[in-house]
Design a protein around this nucleic acid. Sequence first.
DNA 1: TTAAGCTGTGTTACCGATAACCCAAAAATA
DNA 2: TATTTTTGGGTTATCGGTAACACAGCTTAA
Lengths: 349, 349
Amino acid sequence: MIKLVITIYDIAEKAGVSAMTVSRVINNTGRISEDTRKRVRKVMEELNYIPNSAARSLVSQKTNILSLLIADITNPFYTTLARGAEDAAKKAGYRLLFANSDENYAKEKDYVDMMLSTRVDGVLFAPTGDLSVDNLNRLLQHQIPLVILDREVPGIEADIVLGDSKEGAKTLVEHLVSLGHRRIAMINGSPDVSTARLRYTGYREALVLSGLPMDDELVVHLGFRVFHEDAALDALLTLKDPPTAIFAANNLLAVGIIQSLRERGLQVPEDISVACFDDIGPAEMINPFLTVAAQPAYQFGLLGMQLLIERIEAEAAQPPRKIMLPSDLIIRSSTRELQRKETNDGAEG
Amino acid sequence: MIKLVITIYDIAEKAGVSAMTVSRVINNTGRISEDTRKRVRKVMEELNYIPNSAARSLVSQKTNILSLLIADITNPFYTTLARGAEDAAKKAGYRLLFANSDENYAKEKDYVDMMLSTRVDGVLFAPTGDLSVDNLNRLLQHQIPLVILDREVPGIEADIVLGDSKEGAKTLVEHLVSLGHRRIAMINGSPDVSTARLRYTGYREALVLSGLPMDDELVVHLGFRVFHEDAALDALLTLKDPPTAIFAANNLLAVGIIQSLRERGLQVPEDISVACFDDIGPAEMINPFLTVAAQPAYQFGLLGMQLLIERIEAEAAQPPRKIMLPSDLIIRSSTRELQRKETNDGAEG
DNA sequence: TTAAGCTGTGTTACCGATAACCCAAAAATA
DNA sequence: TATTTTTGGGTTATCGGTAACACAGCTTAA
């Protein structure tokens, strides 16, 4: 029976040297004669040696593992981001421990415990919202290098990569206004998420700059997960002066909204225009439909990971950095020019 | 300055006991008086103690980490699968180390090294193809519990969860035949991937059962990644008797094909029908378009992970198990009844 | 010729936790 | 009361590596 787990001691014995010599060969440290080096290397290959990360971590106090926590793995924004993060981590020789909070604070907390226990070298963290402050502070207390993604968390000072939510929202709403829409509803994420607040601010600014009145009845705050709140939509649609366009704070909300509208017999964009933040994945390539403020999701992950690795490998402390990525207005067919109402037509159904 | 990393020795000292007693409290082993237990617990909370996984792994020879390797993180099939795997892993108290081979054998190999070095307790492995046999054998040599996903690899005996590729393909092609199509092309993945072979077999069977001739000119073998092979499509479209329908072996191929067709001024389904394996994500919910054989991706991940955990925690050795999940024919609007040709029309361009 | 320096390698201790073994004091039994 | 058993806990060695130090033998400069 072949020995299953080979250690440096097995190598050392077979090569007739000490374990320390083997360690030196592996790490290219110290002085080793070319002769010994070759002999050790050969034995290592013969025995198919693989170093034990746990043992190495224990003494080096480094795990070579980074962690990526995203808020919603069903959202193409986050999976694309994950891809960017993975590429950058792999390039720098780190392993990636992957976690998905499902926009759920408790799950997020569990994962933070896991990260601390694993002693990961750094964390790329897309917070669920302002509540994440405790979880983030735990990481900071333990001096774990940290880069935050997508959402700012009040009270936390750390490197961060985020999108320009306010400008993106403003551009999107201005686009709707330019199409003639005057009654523009917003269906927003939870107000304890920074992006939801900023997108709301952008929405307001666009209205103000266009000389349109703010109507609180047109604004609904939900969550960022898939939309199920039919009641909210009912409330909007039964207003005396219902909206002719809806701005959804993210992609999955928009998908749910459009489905709900269809169930009510309303067509997009014929009856109502819909625009949202974030693109929605490969399907959009075959039937370009949603008008969106597309964020560079891959860049979020890539740049975030690069910042993190720099932070980990930096000699001296640096002040927190902030990268803000613009979003890109992509006009497709879910929005269109407001049709003049035929008021004398009396057609209600 | 607060001590950053707290060990059981710090707890022991402050609680006036030995490290072993602290270890016993943490693991609920041995005999500890209620009094000491409480005291130790209190100190642990005060100092915000978090066990060191590496140290624990070193002695227990278990890491509590499982690894998930998928073949293409841009494909919604795999991300949905990942979600199922993550849910099952979390439920059982395991951490998940995440890897993406990008359908690339060399990347896959790197990740296998990483898994071995990490001494993961088990691996959920979606192979890139038949070449993966070496990588899989490395894991097996080291007796790492293993469950394979989605693609069979000749020469490897292990638990496996896969879809019924042959039946799915057959159903899809039969659907095209039932719409009157007689010239049905197949754009397939690489022939060294089991699903590509089986989908081809299903395609053939459907043709044979329908009494249609096989025409090798109608079959193209590419890869499973996003489609860029315009030349292949050109060849199909310039045949004397070109296809009126295309069966794509997976979702991303279909997306690429449809884009390419559009660039050539061909409309789907008006000019040509397209059907494929695997659904394409949330966008499909707003504009249902692609006719697909949808596989239960989430179940792939969930069941695979459950098998893996059973395998890890099983007392005795069990023979390899195989779970085959059926796919679901979803007829949408990318396929439609073949229109009678106006042969006397002479319209060639 | 001799002290000093370099080369190549071994020894020892330690990272943080736990298994295996040991043992004093208290409780139970003879 | 003497002996056995139980309770509650401590000691030591070990997991697989690596840092720090030691040191023999050869080279080189004084």
